[in-house]
Design a protein around this nucleic acid. Sequence first.
RNA 1: GCACCCGUAGCUCAGUGGAUAGAGCACCGGACUUCUAAUCCGAUGGUCGCAGGUUCGAAUCCUGCCGGGUGCGCCA
Length: 576
Amino acid sequence: MADPQEVLTQRVQSALGAAFGADYAETDPVIRPSQFADYQANAALALAKRVGRKPRDVAAEIVAHLDVADVCREVEISGPGFVNLTLREDWIAGRAQELRADDRLGTPRQEPRNIPIDYSAPNVAKEMHVGHLRTTVVGDALARTLEFLGHNVIRQNHIGDWGTPFGMLIEHLLEVGEDSADAALLKTDPNAFYQAARVKFDGDEEFAARSRGRVVALQGGDAETLRLWRDLIELSKAYFNRIYATLDVTLTDADLAGESTYNDMLGPICDELQAKGIAEVSEGALCVFLDGFTGREGKPVPLIVRKSDGGYGYGSTDLATIKYRTEELKADRIVYVIGAPQSLHLQMVYETARKADWLGDTEPVHVQIGNVLGTDGKILRTRSGAPIRLMALLDEAVERAAKVVAETRPDLDDAARAAIAREVGIGAVKYADLSISHDTEYIFDFDRMLALNGNTGPYLQYATARIRSIFRKGGLDPAEATGPVVVTEAAERALALRLLGFGAAVAQVGDTLEPHRLCAYLFDLAQSFTSFYESCPVLKAEDPSVRASRLALTAVTLDTLVKGLGLLGVTAPERM
RNA sequence: GCACCCGUAGCUCAGUGGAUAGAGCACCGGACUUCUAAUCCGAUGGUCGCAGGUUCGAAUCCUGCCGGGUGCGCCA
């Protein structure tokens, strides 16, 4: 057990039990980081009323029964009843030493749960936009993190591969030819393909009529139509996969679970809802009306499960995902990483599923993703007002990074510089998405995210590059830097203490589904390291035992930064 | 009208009911014959939107306002 907060919680709980009886042994001792010590226990203030004594007396009682001689160097009652706890340097060093031999770096292995994660979900024949970028990056980080914590993560890429636009798209594909340059646009610039189809649909009545007929054929299972439809999807998949490869995202074709996969479930779902009296026909459409969901002018808002033309919309497919994930995937928790604007819709889907008894004990969670804005505070667009092509945006990030690398590393060859620029550029974009709490809107700003200062990807990558440089320069292998760790200097102490918090930070991301907390931890760690780097020579340390200790601390820091960034889906180049 | 998100330093953002609310950027002042200065150290900077309430204690929880954003019947 390396996490001081966890260790102190147990110790203080024991003291509470010893002092006030077994009933109090479960009380949260409220261990928090302190500005007056390493940690403080705040339990005494809350307990004072319950035990009918003054807070300071309660604190004194806790301290009297507290057995922390091996962990703390100083225990002090302060203010109205805070218990300040200062850790022993040898204890910190010992725990840091243990991390050196722990490939999980202090991360707990949790009781495995089945967790489908719905994320990315681009549309076939449409450009992914920055909103997709964010759900993709955040969802992937959550998937990696939950997996590392020991869970059975099931990635679910709910692509938009079904619905009315496909009539139009198929007709257009048929006209231009499956092997044409126009069709190839699907792989590189899908919006161009979509727009071309759209223009024809809006301007050519005969084409529009054929498109509508094609939708019917598609839903009716017409073989030739299905073949063209699959073609469309194959071309789009090539585009998705190129984006995922560029982004270094873990999604593969095996994770595809698009809307079309639920086709067979939609009819029965509607029948069941109707049979159970949950859904009713209104204005020709099959709708679910739920208590407490009213729209404009107090009118009840429906969740439409079957349209008046007999087609199925996203209301029914989203219900199908719940049914499938609880019944087939045996989900304990379903994570939906989807835009914040869908909040109302998802609430209605969850509530409907609950009423239909499809949820059981499964907990659906909406990880709300805020909109991405430009520096002008409006939805991100190009200067001419068009939506930004995601690949172009990623290219620009890499280009900007390349410009910096060209200036700072003239000593490296072109290939090496290009590789660094790729990792830095992509890492910067991903980290920027992850470092801000996912539910708020965020302002997309290249200059800020590519900065080498502040809570940015490049800053963290730079810290790892400097560490690797130390080992390279010394001709040493980090794996062989085994210590022993001894903590004396303030910067060594701060760094070592920080290292002990990694596991707790990872666990917190798993609990709260908030990757930005891991970013905050890693940034803090990197800052602690750079301070250490400035004030504590490693290779040049004159005393061999000091050198060995610092090398071990440096190696643990490297492992932690690389592992932490890895959980976020960000790589760190060997040199920068 | 209803729902969700937001309002914290000039800007971008953190903040687990605990003491004097933090970080980065910007601005100002310092530190390079370096283990990568793409860095570090320091200073300045606050009516936590407003008003009540709960609490020993509120940026945090509750209620009501004000302001901004988004969504709300046949696209998904």
